[in-house]
């Protein structure tokens, strides 16, 4: 479904990604792993067009989307939850969802209701400003916002970072349910190894902007990822 070929990107003169190859088959959950600052967020941002690629290609369903705008990729049904539970702090929870739904050009309230079905907790908070929610609630809202557009591929950057354990469990469960019941394809950056191992069926380990190991659950021997991630 998603194919990344020889992707390079960086900030000004500082190159961060040195030719990343990555494949996310339809229906799979792929986890990108790596220590802090190796370029995981940079990779996802380049895949989503937030950062321009300096080389290589991004293919979605075979179509080259490397030069497409971020909003066009989202409307092409790739959902993105950037790192750091981003919400629009001055908009209410409802408006946060509505604004994403309206961006798709549709007017019926379908998407918002469907997203709320995944995180029912948000229903009681609809009229609250997002800036006043707890970190965990904000992250649930951020994921719900990405789900509103009914994505076929969901891209998540450290969805459990800095969030209380009870909500981590809810988020993990939501991702599992979406994957199993609706066949949602997921590309995930996850720092916690145990969560990544539970959710994902393929892993890509990055170090200093290059892929150092790639493989399915079976191919990676016990402890190999741990060793690669150890400092």
């Amino acid at each position: 479904m998603l194919r990344v070929e020889g992707l390079t990107a960086g900030y000004g003169r500082a190159q961060v990604l040195f030719g990343i190859d990555l494949e996310v088959p339809a229906g799979a959950v792929v986890s990108v792993m790596g220590r802090n600052g190796v370029g995981k967020t940079t990779l996802l941002n380049t895949v989503m067009g937030v950062l321009p690629a300096t080389g290589g290609r991004v293919l979605f369903d075979g179509a080259d989307i490397t030069r497409r705008g971020t909003h066009a990729r989202v409307r092409g049904r790739i959902g993105y939850v950037p790192q750091g539970h981003g919400t629009f702090p001055q908009l209410t929870v409802e408006e946060n969802l509505l604004v994403a739904w309206e961006a798709t050009g549709r007017r019926d309230p379908g998407g918002v209701a469907a997203a709320l079905g995944v995180f029912p907790r948000l229903r009681e908070l609809l009229k609250r400003r997002a800036g006043f929610l707890s970190g965990g609630q904000q992250q649930q809202l951020a994921i719900a916002r990405a789900l509103v557009t009914d994505p076929r591929l969901l891209v998540l950057d450290e969805p459990t970072e800095g969030i209380q354990p009870s909500i981590v469990a809810e988020i993990e469960e939501a991702i599992t349910t979406l994957h199993q019941n609706r066949g949602l394809t997921v590309l995930l950056v996850e720092q916690y190894l145990d969560i990544a191992l539970r959710l994902a069926d393929a892993f890509t380990v990055i170090d200093r902007g290059s892929v150092v190991r790639q493989g399915g659950r079976a191919e990676l021997r016990d402890g190999e990822i741990q060793r690669l991630l150890a400092i």
């Binding site: 909003h71 950037p82 629009f88 001055q90 798709t104 916002r145 557009t149």
Partner: peptide, 25 residues
């Protein structure tokens, strides 16, 4: 209004607005 909401979203977080499917330009 729909566009007003999008304006406020862009004002508050331009990058996130694009990531929500809003054509910020």
């Amino acid at each position: 209004s729909r566009t007003g909401r999008q304006m406020r979203a862009v004002t508050q977080n331009r990058q996130l607005a694009a990531c929500s499917g809003i054509d910020t330009a």
